[in-house]
Write a protein that binds this DNA or RNA. Structure first.
Length: 377
RNA sequence: GGGGGAAUUCCAGAGCGGUCAAAUGGGGCAGACUGUAAAUCUGUUGUCACUGACUUCGGUGGUUCGAAUCCACCUUCCCCCA
């Protein structure tokens, strides 16, 4: 399942096998396709083009539309979206945070008012597991509560205790579903999620508890939700020693290129983030020299590619001038090209991190790029 | 030929005597975005010696303490009737 190949400091180079699509090389960035599509007009065959190893979709969103029953009927998520590589499904726990005005949390689970049509939806650990089973993803995430920052100690404590109880229920239900004859998701793995807001003692206590449940991997959730970056790093520093060494670690929803390098340096293996796709749609393009805001007037007659050092299909062919024109003219091609470039960059970023680890010079890599990538070009 | 209407800051378009450097859109310029309610949101957009001053609302000349707003003429455009 997970094999550690090499360790440099706390940084880990590994391999992870999934039911679909073979082996994932880690550290890895998972490309986010919430509704079984990468926003900006990027499809499953484009994901191959940008060297995506593993795709991420969302339980809550696919349950609402088109419905997980429908996807199961259509042969499962892989077939439905035309992606034969590994898929991780997020549990809906993030929607407990992002759709806060539309939900009520109870011990049994969360009552949502659908943001699509207002209808009442209940999602608890069992429901989330059932939906992810129907979707047939390779990795299911436990149903958790992503707590907003800042949170009070009392709230964070009560919440992560409840998230622990939810994980116990997730585990039980996941095992039950996996054992059902004719299940679509045979071999589906389950990752537990660490919570505890910005309180180190809660984080550590929670991590120790969930580690006992012997999940297939462990995620750190509830970070990059408003706290300063240094706080995020210190939480990872505090939690990481308590994470099972031989299991993959996943830092959910993170982050900027330098966040990823810094988290790898702290022992994280998996990442996902909306940033390459969302910022791409908004004209912010990532390069090895820093970020390019392609909307800026200075690029109007710039005949260079987004980045001279990028080998992506967009940079091979199109100029900054053309990209900027497409954005200004509101051509949807602008979004597509920008997202393709950014995903290629993120996938290349983790590829370079792996290469540096393989060759034993990750620390040099980290020093060279952690700062540089935060520049503006 | 006769009658009527309109000209506003990059564009469209409010304003109809002081609270107007002038609403609102659009465009321009810049910023934000971290398990996606986001092709979204925010700021800014006359000039400068910028908590103040100066020049602007087709042109010229008036009325008034005060005019984008009222009057006269001029210029241009639009509509209707011949």
């Amino acid at each position: 399942m997970f094999k550690l190949l090499k360790i440099e400091g706390r940084a880990r180079r590994g391999q992870f096998s999934c039911a679909h699509g073979g082996v994932v090389q880690t550290p890895v960035f998972m490309n986010v396709g919430t509704q079984a599509a990468i926003k900006g007009g990027v499809s499953a065959f484009d994901l191959r083009e940008v060297n995506c190893q593993i795709e991420l979709s969302n339980t809550y969103h696919l349950h609402l539309r088109p419905g997980d029953g429908l996807i199961r009927q259509m042969g499962g998520l892989h077939k439905f979206m035309g992606w034969d590589g590994p898929i991780l499904t997020d549990s809906g726990g993030f929607q407990v945070f992002s759709l806060a005005p539309l939900r009520r949390i109870k011990e049994e689970g969360v009552y949502f008012s659908s943001h699509v049509d207002g209808r009442k939806i209940f999602m608890g650990p069992e429901e989330s597991m059932q939906i992810q089973s129907n979707l047939g993803s390779d990795i299911a995430m436990a149903f958790d509560e992503c707590v907003e920052n800042p949170a009070t100690y009392e709230y964070a404590k009560a919440s992560c205790e409840r998230t622990l109880r939810w994980l116990e229920r997730c585990k039980r239900e996941h095992e039950r579903l996996n054992a059902l004859p004719g299940t679509i998701n045979s071999g589906q793995l389950l990752f537990g999620i660490n919570q505890g807001a910005t309180f180190e003692d809660l984080r550590i206590w929670h991590m120790e508890q969930i580690a006992k449940l012997d999940c297939d991997g462990y995620a750190i959730g509830g970070l990059a939700v408003g706290e300063p970056t240094q706080v995020m790093y210190s939480i990872i520093d505090a939690v990481e020693p308590h994470m099972p060494r031989e299991k993959p670690r996943y830092l959910m929803g993170v982050g900027t290129p330098s966040n990823i390098i810094e988290a790898v340096a702290r022992g994280v293996d998996f990442f996902d983030c909306v940033m390459p796709s969302r910022n791409g749609r908004h004209g912010k393009l990532f390069t090895w020299e820093g970020t390019v805001n392609i909307l800026n007037a200075k690029y109007a007659t710039d005949g260079r590619p987004i980045s001279e050092s990028c080998g992506c299909p967009v940079c091979k062919r199109f100029s900054r001038s053309y990209l900027r024109h497409l954005f200004k003219a509101e051509e949807t091609l602008a979004l597509r090209l920008a997202v393709l470039h950014n995903l290629y960059f993120y996938n290349e970023l983790t590829a370079k991190i792996r290469e540096a680890l393989d060759e034993g010079h990750f620390q040099e890599f980290r020093v060279e790029y952690s700062e540089k990538l935060a520049n503006r070009v």
